[in-house]
């Protein structure tokens, strides 16, 4: 009787710990489907370029698995699309692989590159298709669209803004970085001196300034967050005339 008590097992989903602790016939092995692998990603757009960066530390609890694991990925050799993911490393990589495959597939079928708005919508579909067992991956997708740098950011189930964003940060140290970006990119709380509450107008930042901000943000986050550090991968996608170019810079971060 007790051996075939399957109904009890089904009703006991997700399995509770204390239920089967007595020496019964069923031993339920529970696996944790997610791990937090730390790390932070950050993207900032300019007028005709976009910068996407991520640290290269991959950790689990207080252990460091790798100091050189890159989080920012190009989605195709001929594509301006770049995707950065943080959260659970395996899920994050899986999302990237799925996107890479879809971008390649798109080119094979249509003989042209997938546009950033299309890729953005696709990424949402992929993330939302896992709505009830989400991929634990926070994504930032960037690319060049109509000569402009565009950026989209997502939560784990695919919520994103179609019109794109000027900048985004995600992952372990996003709390530390976001207010800094509000201040330095969106110029929040900054007013014209000696003018009566006149806000300083927001203008697109030059590329060197953006790279500087990215490095400052990460060195600061490294200083105060244990999951951030080791190295910084900065990928810049710049529109040049009708085309575009992608470049990668590696920057040292503290390893403690």
């Amino acid at each position: 009787m007790a051996y075939l008590h399957t109904a009890n097992i089904i009703s006991d989903f997700p399995p509770s710990h204390h239920h089967h602790t007595s020496a019964g016939p069923f031993v339920q092995h529970q696996i944790t489907p997610y791990t937090n692998n730390g790390g932070t990603i950050l993207g900032i757009t300019g007028e005709d370029f976009v910068v996407l960066a991520g640290d290269t530390r991959h950790s689990e609890g207080y252990s460091i698995n790798s100091r050189t694991e890159k989080k920012v990925h190009r989605l195709g050799k001929e594509s301006s699309l770049v995707l950065a993911t943080v959260g659970f490393g395996a899920d994050a990589l899986d999302v990237v692989e799925t996107m890479k495959r879809a971008v390649e597939d798109y080119k094979f079928h249509h003989n042209k590159e997938m546009s950033p708005p299309a890729a953005a919508q696709l990424l949402m579909t992929i993330l939302y298709s896992n709505r009830f067992f989400p991929k634990y991956a926070y994504c930032i997708l960037v690319g060049i669209h109509a000569g402009k740098g565009v950026l989209y950011s997502y939560d784990v189930v695919g919520s994103y803004s179609k019109s794109g964003e000027r900048r985004a940060a995600a992952g372990a140290a996003s709390d530390l970085i976001v207010p800094f970006l509000d201040n330095q990119v969106e110029l929040k709380n900054q007013y014209v001196p000696y003018a009566w509450e006149e806000e300083i107008p927001v203008q697109p930042l030059p590329m060197e300034k953006v790279r500087r901000l990215v490095k400052d943000a990460f060195t600061s986050a490294t200083e105060r967050h244990i999951q951030v550090g080791d190295g910084l991968q900065i990928i810049t996608v710049a529109a040049s005339g009708v085309g575009w170019g992608v470049s990668e810079e590696m920057y040292e971060l503290k390893k403690d």
Binding site: D175, L176, N183, A217, T219, S220
Partner: peptide, 11 residues
């Protein structure tokens, strides 16, 4: 405090 640490450290 997290936000303050981030902004302090960079400003």
């Amino acid at each position: 405090s997290n936000q303050l640490f981030g902004t302090c450290e960079s400003l």
